[in-house]
Write a protein that binds this DNA or RNA. Structure first.
Lengths: 208, 208
DNA sequence: GTCTATATCACGATAGAC
DNA sequence: GTCTATCGTGATATAGAC
């Protein structure tokens, strides 16, 4: 009896997911039809549904299948949490989290995922898992940096971390809604905002 | 012959729009059916389509019908542009643009509008019209404030305005995606970030 | 093939205009 | 008081997705 080749199976799934991701980014989840995905992936509906039970599962896979090889994001976050210089690690982490915003399809897909997560608890859990780890890492780094006097000790680490995450998210939403907004070019400004927001006043100036 | 009562017609449209807005916020545009809107508005399909040609027109109306009476947003923006103190006017404008984020349905509706605008040029034009005026106002205020030395002259007004708008937008996206995020409570932090980002260094501190 | 959603249609009731 | 456009209903043709 013929057995399934796991590697081939995974490659086939990725092929479908890549084709679908382009459509989801351009047209959104609901307006993308399974027929279009089949056509883009070059296969029949019967074959497509052999790899995924339904359309939603394909959409979920867009956000889970990423980066299985090489240094995973989770590992890099863990390394950042253990870094000797928390401020430098924070900047590295921001770069890490901001980098995908420069990829062509990602901002639109992220926007679509955010609205879909609203009514899809399974997707919500999937995204929260990632997001919670990211925010926890930022919170840890802020707390460590505050302990060494590298950021404003008056800031609440949890609240500040939420805003750091919001600023990174703004990179994605701006890229998705404003065609003239180039995330890669805006990264220095993002760093400047974070720097001025988080760093303690080095010398209090005159009033006003 | 019987004539149409414009006031009654407008009130009826608003009734439909209010019922539909709740559904659009909770379920999104595509997953909200016209039958549900009919039920929520307490009328038949035939009647509903007397007031709107199609479902999309109802969605558009959610974002145009607002605030016909009283001091309109456009007037308040124009007043801000002409204000004597551009920095104070900027803070007022930020409050004005951020305020709706505290209303229960608005963040979800804004998110939905952003993704729909992607493939609906008419909605895109509608939202851009508002957004362009807002950003232009912020740009003007930044330029005026820079001329009077109230903000960092090293910042490009256009780029800085884009980030001010992005920070305000972050209030909406955070509220929509994170249930623990309360826009009203986060407004002081938003002001703090803007303050530190935009204000000129009053006294350069030691390196590092 | 089955199912679901949109939008239309035919028709009834009503409320001014004259 | 009659007439006619408006307001409103419910059933269904039509299209399209899974």
């Amino acid at each position: 009896m013929r057995t399934v080749d796991p590697a081939r199976h995974r490659a086939r799934r990725r092929h479908i997911v890549n084709a679908a991701a382009e459509l989801f980014a351009a047209k959104g989840f609901e307006r993308t039809t399974t027929a279009e995905i089949c056509k883009a992936a070059g296969m029949s509906a019967g074959n497509l549904f052999h790899y995924f039970p339904n359309k939603r599962a394909i959409f979920h896979a867009v956000f889970e299948d990423d980066e299985p090889e090489g240094a995973t994001k989770a590992e890099r976050l863990a390394a950042a949490r253990a870094a000797a210089d928390p401020w430098a690690a924070l900047l590295d982490t921001v770069d890490l989290l901001a980098a995908p915003a420069a990829e062509p399809l990602v901002p639109a897909l992220v926007m679509e995922a955010m609205v879909q997560a609203y009514r899809d608890p399974e997707l919500e859990a999937l995204l929260s898992r990632d997001n919670d780890e990211e925010r926890a890492t930022v919170t840890t780094l802020l707390r460590n940096a505050a302990a060494t006097g590298r950021i404003d000790p008056g800031l609440d680490p949890d609240a500040a971390a939420a805003w750091v995450m919001a600023l990174i998210a703004a990179l994605y939403t701006s890229a998705a809604t404003d065609p003239s907004f180039r995330p890669a070019e805006q990264l220095p400004t993002l760093r400047l905002i974070l720097h001025r927001f988080l760093r303690p006043d080095t010398a209090p100036g005159p009033a006003r």
